[in-house]
């Protein structure tokens, strides 16, 4: 299928869905409007709301807050997960001792931590960052751990035979291998950073996209909820594209620039 046909079909899906939504919420069928606009809003209203947000500039501060929280959560979580993952992989005893606790914390739905973080860190950005960190940390941790563990024994033996010391093996063999695994989880961890930020905002904050959606919901402003969702989706897509660019740049040595969304 050519690119153009594909794009046309993709746009067609959006047109059909939005068109149906508009029709079902505004045109009475057999005397009733199937989707009451009070609960479902209308695409046109949602679009107008988004335009208004950008026109009067109120959206920027929320976008900025959510972006800051996501980036902080991603950076802190990645650094922490990377270092601890590396450490555990090189020290099997420590990994074995902490194994049940790591599994336990990872099994915990992180949303329940949000109230704790709000209590500890207040309603500012740091409680959201903390929530994002708990999500990002484990994704990166498991990937780096795996990456160090699964270094090809042949490549490792080759490094040794070429005269590498333990420190040089770290730098030239273990670390690049771990990094490659970490980058392949980049999409997931960036996504989680945003999830942490938005959920945190939703549960209690004074700014951010999550706050915007929560506020709209509180006054039954369905158009506002949908508008917030659309902006959020666009925001995530832009970030994901940036990640893809970074990935292509950093993993040039990989057989193909595969998109590992897992």
């Amino acid at each position: 299928m050519s690119r153009l046909t594909l794009l046309t079909l993709q746009i067609l899906v959006a047109v059909v869905v939005i068109g149906l939504w508009q029709v079902l919420t505004s045109v009475p069928i057999f005397g009733t409007v199937l989707l009451p606009p009070f609960f479902f809003s209308r695409p046109l209203d949602v679009a107008l709301r988004i335009v208004k947000w950008f026109a009067d500039g109120t959206i920027w501060v929320h976008l900025w807050i959510t972006l800051t929280e996501s980036v902080l959560a991603f950076v802190i979580g990645s650094l922490g997960g990377g270092l601890v993952g590396f450490w555990f992989a090189r020290k099997p005893l420590i990994a074995a001792v902490f194994d049940p606790y790591v599994k336990m914390i990872n099994a915990l739905p992180r949303v329940v931590l949000a109230p704790i973080f709000a209590l500890w860190l207040g309603l500012g950005i740091w409680s959201k960052v903390a929530l994002g960190v708990t999500l990002v940390f484990f994704v990166v941790f498991f990937n780096v751990y795996q990456g160090v563990k699964e270094v090809s024994p042949t490549v490792l033996a080759n490094g040794r035979m070429l005269g590498m010391s333990e420190r040089q093996l770290m730098r030239h063999v273990y670390w690049p291998s771990a990094l490659s695994w970490m980058f392949s989880s980049l999409h997931t961890s960036v996504g989680f950073a945003v999830v942490g930020a938005v959920v945190g905002e939703y549960l209690g904050s004074a700014a951010g996209l999550g706050y915007l959606i929560q506020q709209a919901e509180g006054v039954f402003d369905v158009a506002g909820v949908f508008a917030g969702m659309v902006v959020l989706a666009a925001f995530v897509i832009v970030i994901d594209m940036l990640v893809s660019m970074v990935e292509r740049r950093l993993l040039v040595w990989r057989p193909m620039a595969h998109d590992a969304h897992g």
Partner: peptide, 18 residues
């Protein structure tokens, strides 16, 4: 380890990131 020896492996042993 035998530091005076060079070893050519059967499997791919090059560092893929270099």
């Amino acid at each position: 380890l035998n530091r005076t020896a060079g070893y050519l492996f059967q499997a791919d042993a090059l560092f893929p990131w270099k």
